[in-house]
Amino acid sequence: MTRTLWGSTIGKKTIMAVSGLIMLGYLVVHMLGNLKIFFGPPEFNGYAHWLRTMGEPFLHYEWALWIVRVVLVVAVVLHAVCAYQLSRRDLAARPSKYVHKRARAGYATRTMRWGGIILALFIVWHVLDLTTGTVHSGGFQAGHPYQNVVDTFSTWYGNVIYLVAMLALGLHVQHGFWSAAQTLGAGNATRERVLKGTANLLALALTAGFIAVPVAVMTGVVS
């Protein structure tokens, strides 16, 4: 079964759909968690600490967090490898272009590949900025995420990178969620509107929810 999945275009799309939905589920939780920043430093920092003690005493300190991280890394890698292989195949399947050009498919669809690359680069920066603190502006303080977030969004480039990435995320999710549903065979004529509506809602909620944080820092609501 693994052979069939990996060896077929539909199989690779299935892997992309499942890994994409896993990441999407994580993002919804991540976005909701971010909004705790509006309740002040103690609550936000406390929430961040709880993420490390989650599952105790059954799990050891940070184990739950590491399980989530491993699952996410596997999902990202599978998603990216399949996307790369399928894209190469798609480009090879259309070697000569039409002389008469016109835009094909919607904006969200056409930006899936570049959007995906933007998101991959963003994830690297995001982890180096707010998880490891390697490229963080100002002194990164482990255990004080509230201050770290304020620091990041007090720089112009931090805001620009984040806003661009979150717009890319919205577009990616809008086409990606609906596509995943089709790939997994959930689409049919009657469900079309519900699926498209859910995709739009998810895209909008994620982009707005994530963007709320830098906007709040920029406007001084969070400082």
Binding site: I10, K13, D90, A93, A105, R110, Q182, T183, G187, A189
Partner: peptide
Amino acid sequence: FGGCTLAGECATACPKGIPLPSIAA
């Protein structure tokens, strides 16, 4: 042939109106 990215161009072009959800099926 390439893979499907659900662009939907095929169903728009189809002279017989085979709908896009056929692919999901």
